[in-house]
């Protein structure tokens, strides 16, 4: 056993892990997706090469766009780098900065990031970017209440809305896992994640069909390092959301319970493994369902809403 790492280092590791592993998880998903479709598919490391290439390229801004257009990718990236401080990425115990915000706080920061990106998209004047931004905000009007209801469920179960507390509760007994409220909240969150990360059945991740685009359409006008930051940011957002689902709701095991080097390394490995596994599940879903027509997406978000509301109901009945 090696000596304990200083707590700030562990905290820093959370951010770095998220930032570094995020493109890899995206790579795994595209690879698996390609294999399921019978293609060879890109290398798992392909997203890193893409980012590196984009960083070397020249940045262009559309005529007439303001400073918002260039500031948004940086600010969004800053948001994505903040959230891993708040959630249990690697440890079962709360890290000092983990008390800065609860689940809601994390949610706010993620929404802020997505708002900034939308703002930048509006700033471009490009019809596709604007379309994506307005669509994203329209559907968010339903997904955000879902997230709220999920938080309510967490609050009713644990008495607090700190992500660490829920993870600890879930670990405490099997009864906490098969209770309907927990399953419903986790399912609702999963649906929201599918929506937020722009997956089937909401949109095609790798398509060129501009009419169906939501998430993908927003960075249409960005280029070079700014585009790289946006791509990286959305990969990080994906991993952050996966982490919340995995480490708070579904499988909060394999986390480091002491700040030792070995447990932390193991936790990093476990996180990457679990996220990759979830990525495989998402890829399978990607391949098994058809994309919904745009007007049907309300149905999808309504289903998530239903799950979340039922979760709260069952809790109020005392049987959740």
């Amino acid at each position: 056993m090696t000596a304990d790492l200083p707590i700030p280092v562990v905290q820093f590791c959370q951010v770095v892990t998220t930032a570094v592993a995020a493109p890899g998880v995206s790579g795994v998903i595209s690879r698996v997706e390609a294999r399921l479709q019978g293609r060879a598919g890109p290398r798992i490391l392909q997203p890193y090469y893409d980012l590196a290439k984009l960083f070397r390229k020249e940045a262009l801004a559309p005529e007439g766009s303001s400073w918002v257009f260039l500031a948004a990718p940086l600010a969004a990236m800053a948001c994505y780098l903040t959230v891993p401080l708040l959630i249990p990425v690697l440890t079962t115990f709360g890290l000092p900065l983990g008390y800065m915000g609860d689940i809601l706080g994390g949610g706010f920061i993620l929404s802020l990031a997505s708002f900034l990106v939308a703002l930048a998209a509006l700033d471009t004047g490009s019809p596709y970017a604007q379309l994506g931004a307005s669509r994203a905000k329209t559907f968010a009007a339903i997904t955000e209440p879902v997230v709220l209801f999920v938080v309510f469920t967490v609050a009713l179960v644990t008495g607090t809305d700190l992500p660490y507390a829920l993870a600890a509760t879930v670990r405490s007994s099997a009864g906490q896992i098969i209770r309907p409220a927990h399953l419903l909240a986790a399912a609702a969150l999963f649906l929201v994640i599918l929506y937020e990360t722009g997956r089937i059945p909401v949109e095609t991740h790798t398509g060129t069909n501009e009419f169906g685009m939501i998430e993908e359409a927003r960075p249409f006008e960005h280029s070079g390092p700014y585009f790289a930051l946006l791509r990286w940011g959305s990969a990080m957002k994906q991993l952050i959301l996966y982490t919340i689902l995995i480490n708070v709701f579904v499988a909060p095991w394999g986390l480091a319970s002491t700040p030792g080097l070995l447990p932390v390394l193991l936790a990093i490995a476990a996180l990457v493994g679990k996220a990759a596994l979830l990525g495989v599940v998402v890829a399978v879903i990607d391949n098994s369902f058809a994309k919904l027509r745009l007007f049907k997406i309300t149905e999808f978000t309504a289903a998530a809403f239903l799950l979340a509301v039922l979760g709260v109901f069952t809790l109020y009945l005392g049987g959740g």
């Binding site: 115990f93 009713l156 179960v157």
Partner: peptide, 22 residues
């Protein structure tokens, strides 16, 4: 962090009750 939770939490049902409810 498992300890300091508020008194208003909804206790988990037994495994059987939970399964039935599910």
């Amino acid at each position: 962090l498992a300890g300091p939770v508020l008194a208003t939490t909804v206790a988990a049902p037994s495994a059987l009750a939970g399964g039935v409810n599910v």
